[in-house]
Amino acid sequence: MRIRQLHCFVVLAEELNFTRAAKRLNMSQPPLSLQIQSLERALGADLFHRSSRKMTLTQAGEVLQRRAKNILAQHDRAILEVREAIAGHHGVLDIGTTGSILRAGLADLLARFCREFPGITVRLHEEAPALQISDLISGRMDVIFNRSPPAHDDLTCELAWKEDMVVMLPADHPLGAQDTLSLDDLRSERHVILRPDSSDFAAYIMSLISHGGMRPRISQQVVDAQSIPSLVAAGFGISVLPAGIAKLTSGPLISRPIAPESPVSEIFTVYSRHQRSPVTETFLRMARLARSW
């Protein structure tokens, strides 16, 4: 049973007239008759009662009619999904990131992507930066978002966006009376920091608070930036961190911009240099457009 035969049958079953059915199918009556006869031979049953006065469906024809439209619809859907997959509009996308980058705007980008491409299933993996790189190289991830460019020949990256760094401190801290803070203002403070050996970004923060040969007073070191606000609120010190983390943090905390020149955190879209699926290419195109939003 071929799809073309089934299509001819469905139209003829609706019209119950060879002339009208052939016209709808944009074909002459003899080829239509051959398609129906071939289908009946394949099924081993007559599908129509034919007489000089009218045409009706046989019991076998009624059974096939109930199923045929669904079969054709599934066939059309399968073709559409294949074409969408080739075009990058259907499939699965695995994205690796950290919680702080989700807060920095990635969540909004993913929400818009899912709305515009509902045929693509996005699977988000929150992991440490080093593990993200490993998973991307092995093929377990399609794209990752990281605060440092990759140091691997098989990977490449694009700057996704930049995020200002701010000072987070308890709401009752004396420095909170100032509208802006300089790095020199932080010289005598205790700091809650990311462990410097946990990522290049953590090392960058350490370099900021160590500027000018200053030896910062380190109170606590953590590997997850989302742990910092709780420690600051508990009185363990202040922290220099991305504005996205401070913006969505609740509790007795405030943040102040750094002046006169605000340091920034760069966020990179990282992906394979050589092997990218159509779905990955679709996401990368939208991520590039996001820079102008």
Rank of each mutant, 00 (worst) to 15 (best):
R2K: 15
Q5L: 07
C8W: 05
C8Y: 08
E14W: 05
E14L: 12
L16N: 04
M27I: 12
M27Y: 03
S28W: 01
R41Q: 14
A45D: 05
F48S: 12
K54N: 12
T58V: 11
Q65S: 06
A68P: 00
N70G: 06
N70I: 11
I71A: 04
H75K: 06
A87E: 09
I95G: 05
R103L: 14
R103D: 15
A104F: 06
L106Q: 02
L109S: 06
R115A: 04
H125E: 07
L131D: 07
L131N: 06
Q132K: 06
S138Q: 10
V143F: 01
R147D: 14
L155C: 02
D164I: 06
V166I: 12
M168D: 03
L181T: 04
S182V: 05
L186C: 10
S188A: 08
E189V: 01
R190C: 04
I193F: 01
R195V: 00
D197M: 00
A202W: 00
S207C: 08
S207G: 15
L208T: 11
P216G: 02
Q221I: 00
P229G: 08
S230W: 08
G237T: 04
S239L: 02
E261M: 14
Q275K: 12
S277G: 08
P278Y: 14
T282E: 07
L284S: 08
M286V: 14
A290F: 09
